[in-house]
Structures are given as C-alpha cells and as structure tokens.
Design a protein around this nucleic acid. Sequence first.
DNA 1: TTGAAAGCGCTAACAG
DNA 2: CTGTTAGCGCTTTCAA
Lengths: 336, 336
Amino acid sequence: MPKVGIRDVARLAGVSTGTVSRVLNDHPSVTDELRARVRSTIEELNYLPDPSARSMRSKVSRLIGIIIPDLTNPFFSELVQSAEQAAADHGYDIIVMTSLDNAVKEADRIGQLTSRKVDGIILVPSNDFHTIMPPKGLPIIVVDRLMPGYSGIAADHRNGVRLGVEHLLKLGHRRIGFISGPKDSVPANDRLMGYLGAMEQIHGDRQAASPSLIAEAAFDYESGRLAGNYLLARARNERPTAIFASSDQQAIGCMRAAHDLGIPVPAALSIMGFDGIPLSNMTTPRLTTVKQPIQKIAAVAVAILLNKQPVPDLDHPILLACEILDGETTSKPQPD
Amino acid sequence: MPKVGIRDVARLAGVSTGTVSRVLNDHPSVTDELRARVRSTIEELNYLPDPSARSMRSKVSRLIGIIIPDLTNPFFSELVQSAEQAAADHGYDIIVMTSLDNAVKEADRIGQLTSRKVDGIILVPSNDFHTIMPPKGLPIIVVDRLMPGYSGIAADHRNGVRLGVEHLLKLGHRRIGFISGPKDSVPANDRLMGYLGAMEQIHGDRQAASPSLIAEAAFDYESGRLAGNYLLARARNERPTAIFASSDQQAIGCMRAAHDLGIPVPAALSIMGFDGIPLSNMTTPRLTTVKQPIQKIAAVAVAILLNKQPVPDLDHPILLACEILDGETTSKPQPD
DNA sequence: TTGAAAGCGCTAACAG
DNA sequence: CTGTTAGCGCTTTCAA
C-alpha cells in the first residue's frame, strides 16, 4: 500500500497540488465547489499530510515544547496534562522535557526544541536558570516561576496566600505560623508577601508576623516536616495555633510533625497548604488548601503561543486567581 | 543572521554536502581527517541539522510517542519522566499524549503519532482499548497493561504481590484481606493471582483466601476507602488483621477507613500497598508497599524501540521484578 | 481563482 | 572514500 500523497489527491480531484494545499491550509481563495471536492477526495483517500514536509516549507511544526523541572511533582504533571489537552484541541502536539532543575540540561533542551522548530515553548525555569537568548521568532512563555524579561503567566500566589491566611484569621487564629519556600524562589517570595500582607491587617497584635513564626524550607514533604517541628516544638502558649504552608507537600509533612508531637489536627492546630494537588484530598484528615488554577494557566499559555490571545506585556505577567479548597484541617483555635 | 545549512558547512570545510551528511550520520566510510575537519566546522558554525528535512528524507524522526491514560496518576508521570530521560540519552525526544481512558481519543492520538512519523510508540492502553492496527513498521510497545498480540513490558505484578503477601504471612498474619483492582484490568488480575497464589501456600487454613476477604475496587483513593470500610466493618474476630491493597492510593484510602473506624495502624491492622509512588512515603504512618521498577520499565521500553534490545516475543512479555519498600504500616498481628 | 514550477534542507544512490 | 545529483512531500511565488 503505497502511501497517498498530495498529488494523488490532486489527480483524483482533478485539480493541481497547489489547490489541494490551499484547501489544506484554509486559504480563502478557493471556490467552495473545489474546496468541497478536494475535501471529499481527501476523506476518500484517507490522506494525511506529512508534517515533516509541511514544516520544512512552512516553518510551522504544530509542535509545542514544554520544559519543566520535574514531572514527579504533581503540580507540574497536572500542568503538562492540561497543556496537552489544550494543545490537542488546536491540532498541536506537545514535546515534554524535564530539566531536573539543572541549568545546563535546561539550556540543552531549549536548543533541542529550537532546532525542532517548535512553534513555542512553555518553560518553568529551573531554579538555577541562566538567562537564555532564544532565537527571536520563537515565543517562550514562562510559567509559574516568573522571570523578569520574559512574558509570564502564573497563579496569583500573593493574593492566594492572603486569602488563605485571612481564612485562618476569620476563624479566630492570631498566632499563625508560616512555612515559606526557598528564598531564592520567586513564587515562594510572593507567597511570603501574601502572608505578611494578611498579618499586617491585624492591628494591635504585636506578635502578628513575628519572625519566630516563619520557617524557611524547601517545598517538599520532609522539609515541611522539619519546619513544622521547628514551629511546634515550643511552649504551648507560644506555639502557633495555625500554620500556613507554602505547598501541600510541606503541609502534609507538617501534619506528620504535629502527629509526632501529639498535637491533634485540627483540634489543637489548624493547617493549610497551597497548590491543591490531588494528594491534598487523600490525607487524613483532608487538607484544607489554596488551589492554583493549573488548568487555566496551561490553557492560557497555549492560547498565547497559538496567537489566540495577545502576548502579555513583559512587565505585567498574567496572574490568575486561586481559590480555597475546604478540607478538615482547619477549625477555631482552642483557648490558651 | 541567515541560518546555516549543510552547504555552508560543506563549503567552509572544503568538502561536499554528502560528506557532511555522512559525518552527521556516523557513516563509517569517512576519513578520520575529514571527519575531524567537518566536525570542527560544524562546531564553529554552530550548525544544527534541520530535523524536518532530515526526517523527510530518511524516514526517521528521532521522536517517540508515549500515550498514557492519565498523567495525574503518579505511576504514569514517573513512567513518562523516566522515558524522557532514557530517550534524551539517545538524542530522542518524546511526544506525550493522554487518552483519559477514552478509546476514541486514544485511536485518534495513535493516528496523530503515526502521521508524525514517530519512530515508535510506548502505549499504556486505555481501559476500553479497541484493537488497533498500527501501520506495520511502526513499533508499538505496550507497557503495564499488557495486551495479547502486542509486545509488552511490565512489572511482574503477580510475583510482586506474592512477595508482599508473603511478607504479611511471615509476620504471622492469616486473615489477610485483599483489595483488588477493577476486574477488567489485566494488571489487576495479575495482582489478584499473586494474592491467591500466596494464600494457597497456607495449608490447613480454610479461611486463607475466603471470598469475603476480597473486595473489588477501582485503583483510586476513594474506592480504596470504601473497600477498606467493607473489609473492616465486621466483628473483630472476622475482620482481617492485615490488608493488601492493589495500589498505594487504595491503601491510603484504606488507612483512612481504618482511622474512621478507630482501628489503629499498624497496631490492630497492617496495611500494604502496591506501586511505590512517592506518595507512599508521605503518609502517616509511612506506607509499606511493593515498588514497581518504573524507571527500568521505561528504560527497557525505550531501548527496544531504538533497537538497542530485541523486541520481546508477542507471547512472552518482559516482566521486571518488584521489591518491597518497608514502611510503618505493617507489624505482627494482635492476638484475637 | 487556479496551475505550473521552483525549491525548503537534507540523504542516498550512483559514479568516479 | 568522496563528490554529484536527484528527489522526499509540501508550500508558495509567478503567470495565466
């Protein structure tokens, strides 16, 4: 079965290859009649255009590259999945690459994608990202870990955390601990700002945002556990009655710390996380958390790359709102 | 900056394009001297071959497709990540697609990959997979959910579960409950076989594999919780002293069920999971589980597609051994 | 609006 | 061993 090419279609439809090509590319200047005839011939022959040949001529590959630090992180895997769905809706395919937070690998991957002539790149920069000069004409959109100088899109971490902390404040908590992310991380700092902002609103409470209520940690489970330990291993009347963690995994680690110290959650300690990964719904008790609009982030990123939506200004990344996912780890504070 | 092509390299190196091409493809018949000269010119010009042009002539795309049901499932995302690493080692890129367990979407994706001329497909078939006739010449290797008629590679679920159940038996457990996977799932059945096989070894114990000790469930958390409830909500002397779940998520759901019923784990109930996803290490207490060799599965699948390793016989899929990951959810049974 | 024809950048005969 | 050359399948001028 010799594979069917554009000439076969042209011959059978009684037109030129040029016309078939125009139909394929929705070029306006083709008679409805011819268009219909060609379409049905394509159908009949079960013709599929060859992407390589197409891309070679047209400089368009219908391919989008996505580079993330680690697919094992549920946040990123959901991001990739959402991007894939969004891209598929437009006939685009996704090439995934993981940098493992290694700047060298990352640069290498970007080069790889460039030579593949992908039509755009969605990039979650590695933590030690080095400035990169992508060939102009290759749109790169940075997601989540925003970088000055690149068009970006992310959740509104700052307001998201603020929302979460206010939730705790409304419940009556005042000594609210905070587990921050690594301080060289952009999203981590935004989250910290959100916390500080919310705490400042509490007038007349000196302890509101005391430094001793803040523990720096990586975003993972174990770091969260250690940070939780640090915040909780103190006299009861100095110990926070609630802890807001910068990631769900931290929050879960913190739950473990509380457990080990014999502090019941949420009776004696409220805990909130951030991210809204599926995992947050599988803990006992279920974690109350702030959910990032991952799907929307992916959809918008793809839309921008496909020119369905204007590229955001370099100085004004698109920020999408978070929402609270109510769980079982928050309640009113116990009286001291 | 006009982009540099193979002719530029040829001209500057003082050879023909043919020779450059041969160097590019490691064709043996090129003098070391010329090879070196060409290589350095390539370096100097920063030349990158155009994959589209290459693929058009050579019918090789250096692309491999991977289709999985759901990237949100940690097992699959680890699989994809491992495949990406393995492929990158050989200069290959990965196109990911998710079928969401929808056979129509799946068939569509396979077509998409075919027309992309990927050099091979790694497929985790959707649950309602329909037989597919991939164009011959396009190697497809089925992973995890083995299908008769396709070359396959997977963890040795049967022996893995057997190992796990024997672990419980050695601890002294006899009434060991089993949460199975959906019965139309191949791996689920293999796991069930492993359980039954291990239980049969216990001579003289009528109750060994009593049907009432087996609960069917989907692989997710909530189904595991319900199944756990079913197995545990009975008189203490009829209740299993240990439960082996067919997935980590089920096991975690089951932990929740035990918690809700006031049954301490592992004091009054041992629980084991299956998969060894990162999540299993983040529960309180940490889950004891049977780990699948995901990374190895991916590496072997890629190696096969790149012809670094022989294609397995259709009737003899490659099975890779699992190992026990010791956690805190197993202990000796309490006396009745 | 449509057809004819010239390549896109590379590989693979085929000569030499 | 190396150079020459003819396309791969498609898009896109350029004329008609």
